[in-house]
Design a protein around this nucleic acid. Structure first.
Length: 865
RNA sequence: GCCGAUGUGGCGAAAUGGCAGACGCAACGGACUUAAAAUCCGUUCUCGCUAACGCGGGGUAUGGGUUCGAAUCCCAUCAUCGGCACCA
């Protein structure tokens, strides 16, 4: 045997138990109405962010969150919950398509192989997923419903009166296409020539593609958009009742970026071409008197109209130059502001002053009204711009602490501002806004940074749009034509012109004599926007999720009769959702948006998808660096499991430190945890002469000693509480303490050992199942499967000591300790402490000013100084 | 630049107003062994005093504050990580 001897025979029993769980389908959770459904059990929905099955297989980062949720799932089952714990595949996406371009292998084939690999790896770790609920976003039976949901969005509009999505039929306006939640627009998009596709803003980092790091340029193209901005207010407001990390909520709030201010109309000065005027947005209407110029975004539609003849050329040049700039150049060149004067003037509605109108690319068309009033005295950007181009600077806010007014952007007192003279900023804002509104010159307004969601991609490996074009107009395919499957291609290359690869499939595009199919596909986010709903009812052929199943699994957790979703202010949904922070804004915002649309349309019972969210921290390589192929510090879970077993792998992942923290991998650490499990094994099993294992005769049906009983119950308490708070690392520490306490005992009680196995089972399900079975052969117990045994309860009475050790401090410094009865009065404790020889020495000859007594903890004697 | 998180032994960490360093790793010493591995037992924040049992001082990024008492609460500074970055 060249192979290192295993400290315990995990290689024999781990596959055995994985097979048994599979055969007996122990982790299948029946839906309401199905066989074995027990309505008395409260439900618990614990979900992982499902992976993209890449060619590289699992890395050790995936199983971190997965192990945490698996522990919760197994624990909740033992606590009598009906647990929904599913897994699936987010399998559309760019890597499979790029691999196809390189090798000609169909993405479907690559995906199939990768899924098989991922699945066998996940099984090898012993996760208790309900595999009957496995889903795959690339399965036509799945994306049929992704397309169906898209059509619900397409067929809806957001009614501002009710603040809800409604069927488009309820819209009374002339042009329903202008208000649909899914609409077509010619928008400047992030075109990546290298990838041959358009990217969402979120997929562009520093002017380069997030995938591959290729340059990205702006270019106008016809695209499908989803009107997520309609939900901006609700997406902010309804964060409040979610149990999410505050930092993630903040990230979402900042991403949505709500600003309150006012829109103000500036008339174009006489003598120029007539126009209605220019509308600007500002959060500081109180600085209106300080507005000494206006700036329009270069792409602003009014620019053509107002530009003075003699300025046309320079204006046109500047606009072309701005349009040519890629995002990258714009950010890189952002160091210095540029702009040109249009030759036109506007009238400041408050001061009546005639002020010049400029264009500059520091003003963005996509935000606010695409135009600003320049208030150089009280805005850093405007100040920089005004100084560069010699524009007038007018101070209109007086700082309260005597700072110089120019460049002051905080709140102060209005000056040189007739209507609001002397008012503090907050009041000045209100008054000037009202003053403008009375005169029809402005109004209070709220703007968001959030943009509508660019929803189309020029790719092959994604959901085709269920849309037909005829005579230049789009319409939905009928429901019974779903799913719209993509044609088989042997060439997946982008056309390079911006036309999607699907454009190559001439027959497929042709829908009728006069109608053609949409050739764009949906982005990868689409499938993950609603997968948690499909898990509730994955084989339903009639509906994207059955109503009863949705109500049951997405409702509030708790026994029958407990508050229903929304009734106590908590939105309900998935009870625990664990995944990485990288999805803090995108996936989580998109999913919330789709969920709300479906909720508004009456398809769902809860307003939010995920009640509680937890982010696991990143696992670094042994060198403390981010794991990456190029650094060569990637840890492969298969190798770890080979050497130490799945249980050791799981326990180590949890023992490393707090779940949410970033932490480095350590093989030595795995070894330590493996040693712990080996000690558990040897607590039960003795090795025979023939190198076989047999149940140790030390294990007997006896009552635990008092000290042992205390450890047992302290451990039940700590492990239970720690699992509830996801403090898995300290739960394992406590079980180590437990095992250390029994390691050298001559005899060990069966009851204590059963408790240990139950507590350890969610963490190390294989070894505990095996030992439970081995022990059951000699000391039978029902049920025979540990996984269906109830969770142990602790007896508080056994934890209470009748005597406690108290510490004695003098002036807050630890000086001595003594034992005292729990019943001792404060007076008794005080005199006992003062009677200690050491304390007497320290106190001798000094005045005792005060004695502080904390029950069961300490006596602190404070001396006069 | 703005926002957020984190900072504790040689290392992963624990303690969230009351004994700093539980538990694990590593290191060192011992037992078992012909030997090694494995296993079991012990030591390990730091400085000073003591022949020794011990005793005392200091210590949770840095500086200040609140408190009888601070790793924990407050203020400032520094460092690391993450997000946003002309959003008017």
């Amino acid at each position: 045997m060249s192979e290192r001897r295993k400290p315990y025979p995990f290689d024999q029993f781990e596959p055995k138990w994985q097979r048994i769980w599979d055969e007996r389908q122990l982790f299948h959770a029946p839906n309401p109405g199905e066989q074995n459904f027990n309505p008395a059990r409260p439900k618990f929905y614990v979900l992982d962010m499902f992976p993209y099955p890449s060619g590289a297989g699992l890395h050790v980062g995936h199983p971190e969150g997965y192990t945490a949720t698996d522990i919760i799932a197994r624990y909740k089952r033992m606590r009598g919950f009906s647990v929904l714990h599913p897994m699936g595949w987010d399998a559309f996406g760019l890597p499979a398509e790029q691999y196809a371009i390189k090798t000609g292998q169909h993405p479907a084939a690559t995906t199939r192989e990768n899924v098989a690999r991922f699945k066998s790896q996940l099984r090898g770790i012993g996760f208790s997923y309900d595999w009957q609920r496995e889903i795959n976003t690339t399965d036509p039976e799945y994306y049929k419903w992704t397309q169906w949901i898209f059509l619900q969005i397409y067929d809806s509009w957001f009614n501002p009166e009710t603040q809800r999505a409604e069927p488009i039929a309820t819209y009374r306006g002339a042009d329903p296409d202008s208000v649909r939640l899914a609409y077509v627009a010619d928008v400047p998009v992030n075109w990546c020539p290298e990838l041959g596709t358009v990217l969402a803003n979120e997929e562009v980092v520093d002017g380069k593609s997030e995938v591959g790091g290729f340059p990205v340029v702006r270019r106008p193209m016809r695209q499908w958009m989803l009107r997520i901005t309609a939900y901006a207010e609700r997406l902010i407001d309804e964060l409040d009742r979610l149990d999410w990390p505050e930092s993630i909520k903040l990230l979402q709030r900042n991403w949505i970026g709500k600003s309150e201010g006012a829109e103000i109309e500036f008339k174009i000065a006489a003598g120029e071409r007539r126009s209605t005027g220019i509308r600007v947005f500002t959060t500081r209407p109180d600085t209106l008197y300080g507005a000494t110029y206006l700036v329009l975004a270069p792409e602003h539609p009014l620019v053509e109209e107002i530009a003075a003849k003699e300025r046309r050329t320079s204006v046109r040049e500047y606009r072309e130059q701005a349009a040519r700039k890629s995002e990258l150049e714009r950010t890189e060149l952002a160091k210095e502001k540029t702009g040109v004067f249009t030759g036109a003037f506007a009238i400041n509605p408050a001061s009546g002053e005639k002020i010049p109108i400029w264009i500059a690319d520091y003003v963005l068309l996509g935000y606010g009204t695409g135009a600003i009033m320049g208030v150089p005295a009280h805005d850093e950007r405007d100040l920089e711009f005004a100084r560069k181009y010699g524009l007038r600077i007018a101070e209109v806010v007086q700082p309260l602490n005597g700072e110089p007014a120019t460049g002051f952007v905080g709140e102060g007192r209005a000056v040189n501002s007739a209507v609001i003279e002397g008012l503090p900023t907050a009041e000045a804002k209100k008054k000037i806004t009202a003053w403008l509104a009375e005169r029809g010159l402005g109004r209070g307004a709220i703007k968001y940074k959030l943009r509508d969601w660019l929803f189309s991609r020029q790719r092959y490996w994604g959901e085709p749009f269920p849309i037909i074009w005829e005579n230049g107009k789009h319409r939905a395919v009928t429901d019974h034509e779903l799913p719209v499957t993509a044609p088989d291609l042997n060439d997946f290359k982008p056309t390079g012109t911006g036309e999607p690869p699907l454009a190559k499939a001439r027959d497929w595009i042709r829908y009728s004599e006069t109608a053609a199919r949409e050739t764009n596909t949906m982005p990868q986010w689409a499938g993950s926007c609603w997968y948690y709903l499909r898990f509730c009812d994955p084989r339903n052929a009639q509906r994207f999720v059955g109503e009863e199943a949705e109500r049951y699994w997405m409702g509030r957790a708790g026994p029958p009769g407990a508050p229903t979703a929304g009734s106590d202010g908590l939105p309900g949904g998935v009870d625990l959702y664990v995944g990485g922070t990288e999805h803090a804004v995108l996936h989580l915002l998109y999913a919330r948006f789709w969920h709300k649309v479906l909720f508004d349309l009456g398809y769902l019972s809860t307003p939010e998808p995920f009640q509680r969210l937890v982010n696991q921290g990143i696992i670094l390589g042994e060198d403390g660096q981010k794991m990456s192929k190029s650094r060569g510090n990637v840890v492969n879970p298969d190798e770890v499991i080979d050497a130490y077993g799945a249980d050791a792998f799981r326990c180590y992942e949890m023992f490393m430190g707090p779940l949410e923290q970033m932490k480095p991998w350590s093989m030595r650490g795995v070894e330590g945890v493996s040693r712990f499990l080996a000690r558990v094994w040897r607590l039960f099993m003795d090795e025979t002469q023939a190198a076989a294992w047999e149940l140790s005769p030390r294990i007997q049906e006896i009552a635990p000693e008092k000290a042992q009983g205390k450890v047992v119950h302290a451990t039940i308490k700590k492990v239970t509480e720690d699992i509830e708070s996801l403090s898995f690392n300290t739960a394992i520490s406590q079980m180590m303490v437990f095992v250390n306490a029994f390691t050298n005992a001559a005899v060990v009680p069966v009851s204590a050992m059963r408790t240990l196995l139950l507590l350890l089972n969610p963490f190390a399900p294989h070894i505990t199942s095996e030992l439970w079975e081995k022990m059951g052969a000699k000391f039978p117990i029902l049920p025979p499967e540990i996984t269906s045994h109830p969770w142990p309860k602790y007896n508080e009475a056994l934890l209470v000591e009748d005597e406690v050790e108290l510490i004695v401090q003098v002036n807050g410094k630890l000086r001595d300790k003594f034992r005292a009865s729990l019943e001792a009065t404060e007076e008794e404790l005080k005199s006992a402490a003062l009677a200690l020889p050491k304390i007497q020495q320290l106190v001798a000859g000094k005045e005792i000013r005060k004695v502080i007594i904390v029950r069961k903890k300490l006596v602190n004697i404070v001396l006069a100084s």
